[in-house]
Nucleic acid binder design. Structure first.
Ligand SMILES: [Mg+2]
Length: 222
DNA sequence: GCGACAG
DNA sequence: ATCTTGTCGC
């Protein structure tokens, strides 16, 4: 898939925040259409470099359809709220190598559950002009109640008097994940798709795969 | 000033 | 996220 919109990546802390605020006006929230193919992307880090892997799957069977890797030097530090400026360009490079077209992309981080409603999934979804969903392993933004113990139960993440995502129990009795819609998606679709690609583990299968792959890629290049 | 803080 | 192997428990 191709990147449709661009902005500089070698920016200062204040410029990064300014870009997030500007992109906020481009965010479109709406239900997802039918999902036949889905992609996920993640990165691992070693010796100041990011190793990103993107992969495409059949949504119904979770069969692997395509895979792509990218390596690049890191220049921006990790700052909560600005994760996209650390690993975003590496993730886009990996996604750019995917030949298979997909209906939605999963990211290892927040979507709209972010102080400026512009988490990694929302931000990169806009640049790619593709539907996107954020599936974070821990909390960043929004008030919520502990969801029920059973797999499938969830409770809304509320910020600024509106729902920006949900804490979703993807395995009974296990810590929930934080699912929030990115671009061209809504809360109901995000939760449905995130749960729809779990196969017995807390983390949705496409993200589990790219996480493991990026780690292997980084370790064997060390 | 203090606390919180995706990966 | 990373530094790091085996080990305890469901
Ligand atoms: Mg990650």
């Amino acid at each position: 898939m191709r990147v449709r919109f661009f902005h500089p990546w070698n920016v200062t802390y204040l410029q990064a925040i300014s870009i997030q605020i500007r992109l906020r006006h481009e965010l479109i929230e709406r239900p997802l259409g039918s999902v036949e193919r889905i992609a996920a992307v993640d990165a691992s880090f070693v010796e100041g470099r990011a190793y990103a892997v993107a992969a495409a799957f059949s949504y119904s069977s979770m069969e692997l359809l395509d895979q792509s890797m990218a390596k690049c030097d890191l220049d921006f530090p990790y700052i909560p709220g600005l994760l996209t400026f650390r690993e975003g360009s590496a993730l886009l490079m990996a996604l750019d190598g995917l030949a298979e077209e997909v209906d939605v992309i999963l990211f290892d981080g927040q979507g709209q559950a972010h102080p400026r409603f512009m988490g990694e999934a929302a931000h990169l979804g806009i640049l790619l002009d593709k539907p996107s969903i954020g599936c974070a392993k821990s909390w960043l933004w929004g008030e919520y109640e502990e969801p029920g113990w059973e797999k499938g139960s969830s409770s809304p993440l509320i910020a600024g008097c509106r729902q920006v995502g949900a804490a979703v129990r993807t395995r009974s009795g296990v810590k929930p994940i934080f699912v929030s819609p990115g671009h061209l998606c809504d809360n109901a679709s995000a939760k449905e798709v995130a749960l729809g690609c779990c196969r017995g583990f807390r983390i949705p299968e496409p993200l589990r795969f790219v996480h493991a792959q990026s780690k292997r890629y980084a370790l064997e290049d060390r």
